[in-house]
Amino acid sequence: MYRKSFYQYLMTERNPENTDEVAQFANNAFYDQSFPKHSQSYEELSQYLELNGEYLPTMTIFDQAWQMYLEKMS
């Protein structure tokens, strides 16, 4: 079975009108040219965001989005 990358899932949460933290994360990740777009690895994405995710006010938002991703993919 094909599983979307986290980035592909995150783009479904994009909404420039929405002030929801996950939507804002998705909006910002869209403009991040270096985002690991094909990754399905929590560790890889978490490490990337800790080093490069200035636009992410707290990693809790990533964790929330990751949980949503896992639920959607299961």
Rank of each mutant, 00 (worst) to 15 (best):
A29R: 05
E17H: 12
L70N: 09
Q64H: 11
M11H: 05
T58H: 14
N52G: 11
E54Y: 14
F35V: 04
N28R: 14
Y42W: 13
E44N: 00
Y55W: 12
S39I: 06
F6A: 04
E13W: 04
Y69V: 03
F30C: 00
F25H: 01
T58V: 12
Q47H: 10
N28S: 15
E21P: 15
V22E: 05
E44G: 04
E50G: 09
P16H: 05
S74I: 10
Y7A: 03
R14K: 09
E50R: 13
Q33M: 15
E21C: 13
L51I: 08
L70C: 11
E54R: 10
G53P: 08
F6S: 06
D32L: 12
F25C: 08
K4H: 01
F6I: 09
Q40K: 15
Q47L: 07
T60S: 13
E13L: 07
P16G: 05
S39P: 08
Q67R: 12
L51H: 07
D32Y: 10
S34D: 15
S46D: 13
R14V: 02
P16L: 07
Y31V: 14
K37D: 02
M11D: 01
Y48D: 07
G53W: 00
E43A: 15
Y69E: 01
E50K: 14
Y9M: 05
E50L: 14
L45K: 03
N52R: 14
E17T: 12
E71A: 12
A26T: 06
Y2K: 14
Y55A: 02
M59Y: 06
N28M: 14
M11G: 05
Q33D: 15
L56P: 02
E44Y: 02
V22H: 02
E13F: 04
V22Y: 02
A29N: 06
Q33W: 10
V22D: 00
N28Y: 09
L70I: 13
Y31R: 15
